[in-house]
Every structure is written in structure tokens, then in C-alpha cells.
Design a protein around this nucleic acid. Structure first.
Lengths: 212, 212
DNA sequence: CTGACGTCTTGATATAAATCACAACTACTT
DNA sequence: AAGTAGTTGTGATTTATATCAAGACGTCAG
């Protein structure tokens, strides 16, 4: 099940382990509006959201929904409840059609957590994710758009022209207009050059000083 | 050792477990400029940076330092190398005076990772940290400063006046001036009121609409 | 080739927040 | 009580980026 592999948590598992994991995992499709779980339900599966938008909400005395969380793919949903062995603290419903994988937690614990080797793997995955998120924060909150682009180019030199510019813009949290102007700026600074099939690095160390 | 407790990774440990952990942990003080470890050293301890600024760097052929990472407290440093059981891929030196705790990894593995109960605890810590970072990203990239402050106040109603304003400003990634003006704005909107000992929420649901 | 659509570029303008400068508080210290 | 350092508030200005509007370029269908 490559669906599992796409989630950072499982990226370090080998094929055999993934097969084992698949054996007690269940892929389910849900329609828009359908309920994934209710508050107070016993939390006995890890839930991996693969497609769709899932809201986690409570209803108050007056039957108003209070949305606690809105999940986008690919996310691990409500793992806290599962890890703590308690029941779900809120309900969850799909705001669009969706697909989830449910992983039986008892089996998961038995097969994986009792294996220190495996526990280590999961730590690595989680630790990597944390580093990644810290990078995202550093990249987006601390740096201005020129520095963000410079870092982006620096980090993925080869993949430079593999995305449309508006996709790069989205990734870097700026508008396509700003991206366009920023590219131009880097060309003027002679850090990049533009040819028929896109931009190319001209002075890599020069790029570095922009974000360090 | 409450030093350990302040790191998210260990926050779920009870006193007994912390004591055990302390028994094979070592607090060390370093002067500015001193070396924490060299590239190629065997990575046999988890290193928790408690105070100071630590740079992780490589030196190239021409003896130029290339800074790979700069760590601020409280961070787990180079845990990848330790988890993988390899040697450090770069050197680390203090850019200011600093304090670290070194945790013997063999003992750590033996005492903690072999205990599935404990592995679960660490997963919880990491998972919580991931959620926190995701929140930081959502908070800071998507929302403007008014919305950020509204959410901040909404989320920690009680702790509202426990920090200096300039600390809150730093936390929300804005300048104290902007924070001051934003507070004022929320008072004018009648969402907050100001009395002798700080700001108080006047209309909680009103705050919510600003960030949802 | 010609239009038509998607993408990128460019310019003009608007806006949020940072910066600069300093005034007003607040809380200590002696 | 007066003086000083630390904190917060206010106004004026500047800056980065978004937004709005329009033109240029590329490519694919007919």
C-alpha cells in the first residue's frame, strides 16, 4: 500500500513492514457530509486522512457546531486519543468526499511498538517532520520574499524548473507577481540567468548570502 | 532535573522516570567558542541544548566554515546521527556561552525505548510538538496581526497578562508597537477592555470571528 | 495561420506592518 | 520623593508585498 508510504510517519518502513502494516489497515471511502466518528466513541484506530477535508467539531447546548480542527491530507487524525487510550473528545465529519486508512492500534502496538528497532524508525520519522516544520517556519516567518526564493533555489537547484511558477509562488507563500519580480531581481544581481527553458543558477554562493 | 522536563520530548515523564534519566545525563557548561563535537566523532549521546547558541558547521577545502544549522535553546541537537548510530556529519561550536545536557544513548535505549509504554510517551510528546508547529505555521503565515492576536487571546484567556507585551509581540512575530496598536484596535471594537492590571476579554465570540 | 486560453511580466496603486523618534507610564533604587 | 531604567503608547514615515489592471508570450486546436 503506497498510500501508507506517502505519510512521513511510515516513510522509513521497508516493503515487508509495509505489507504487515497493510494487513491490519483498512482503506475506506466516505461521502461528503458523512461522519467518521462521534464524540465519546472509543478510539481504537489510528486514522490517516488520505483525501478530502475533515472537520473535527463539538456541538454545544444550542446545537451549534464548534469546529475544533480542520484536517487536510495527508494527516494523522486524533492520534492523541488513540495513544492515550481514551475516547474521542469530539466528532469528525467530512466536508468533502474523502478517503481514510484506519490502522488497528492494538495490532500496531503489538507489531511495531514492541520492537525497539521499529520505535527508533518512528522517532526518526517524527524527528524529521519536526525539522521540516521548523524549516518551514524559519523560511516563511523570518525571511523576506527574496531570501525565501534564494533559499528555495539553493536547496533544490536541479528541480528548479519542474514546477510552474505559480506553484512555486504558492509554496513560498507569495503571489506570482511578486515571484516574477523577485526572479528578475536575482537575474539583475547576476545570481541567476534566464534561458529558453527557464532559470539557471549563475552564482550559488551569492544566493546563499541572501538568506544567511 | 527540571532542565530535562522543559524539553517537550520529556514532558510526559513522571518524577521517577526523570530521576532515572538524570542518572545517566550530564549537564555541561561551555564557554563561547568552545567545541561541542567534531565531525567524525562517534555520536553516542543525545544532546539537549539548554542555553546559548550553537552552530553546526563543516569546513571546506579552503578552511571556510559553512554553517549548516544554528540551534537555539531548547533543542535536541544532531539526534539523527545518534538514532542512526553513525558519527557526527559536522562539527558543532558555541557562538555564546552555553549549557547542554548529554544523555547516554545506550542507557537511554535500554531504559526507555525497550519499554513500549515509554515509547508511547515519546510519541505523544513528538506528536504534540508537531501539532504545535503546525499551529505556529497556520497562525503566522495565514493570519494578519489582528487575527494572530485575537487567536492568541482566545486560546490563552487566563494567561493573558502573564507575559510582558514585548514578549507576546515576539511570540506573535510582530513588533511591540504593532502589538500595542492592535490591542487598542480590539478595545475599540469592544472585544477587549483594559483595566488597571491589563486587558480582559469582553466578547469572546467576537474575537473568534477575527481568525476563523 | 489564427484565435483562444493559460501563464508570465510589468506598471500603478493600496495596505499592513516595520521602523524611527519620542512622549508617557511604571516600577525600582537610593 | 526624585531619578533612572525599563516598558508601553503615539505619530510620522518608509518599506515590502498584495492587489488591481493590462499587456506579452507560448502553445495548442481547428
Amino acid at each position: 500500500m503506497r498510500d501508507l508510504k506517502q505519510f512521513y510517519f511510515f516513510e522509513n518502513l521497508d516493503d515487508e513492514q509495509l505489507a504487515l502494516l497493510s494487513s491490519f489497515s483498512n482503506k475506506k471511502h466516505y461521502e461528503k457530509g458523512s461522519i467518521l466518528f462521534y464524540e465519546k466513541d472509543e478510539a481504537k484506530s489510528l486514522i490517516l486522512l488520505i483525501e478530502g477535508v475533515l472537520k473535527v467539531y463539538k456541538t454545544d447546548q444550542k446545537n451549534n457546531e464548534i469546529i475544533m480542527h480542520r484536517f487536510m491530507p495527508v494527516s494523522l487524525v486524533a492520534e492523541m486519543a488513540v495513544l492515550e487510550g481514551i475516547s474521542y473528545p469530539a466528532s469528525a465529519a467530512f466536508e468533502s468526499a474523502g478517503v481514510v486508512i484506519e490502522i488497528d492500534f492494538e495490532r500496531f502496538k503489538k507489531e511495531f511498538l514492541h520492537n525497539p528497532q521499529m520505535a527508533l524508525l518512528f522517532f526518526k520519522s517524527l524527528s524529521k517532520k519536526i525539522k521540516y516544520l521548523e524549516d518551514v517556519i524559519a523560511l516563511n516567518i523570518v525571511l523576506d520574499s527574496t531570501a525565501r526564493l534564494a533559499k528555495y533555489i539553493f536547496d533544490k537547484e536541479d528541480a528548479l524548473n519542474s514546477l510552474k511558477q505559480y506553484q512555486v509562488a504558492e509554496h513560498l507563500h507569495m503571489t506570482p507577481e511578486t515571484l516574477s519580480r523577485t526572479f528578475k531581481k536575482l537575474v539583475i544581481l547576476e545570481l541567476l540567468e534566464k534561458d529558453s527553458n527557464g532559470y539557471k543558477i549563475k552564482n550559488k554562493e551569492g544566493l546563499r548570502v541572501l538568506f544567511e
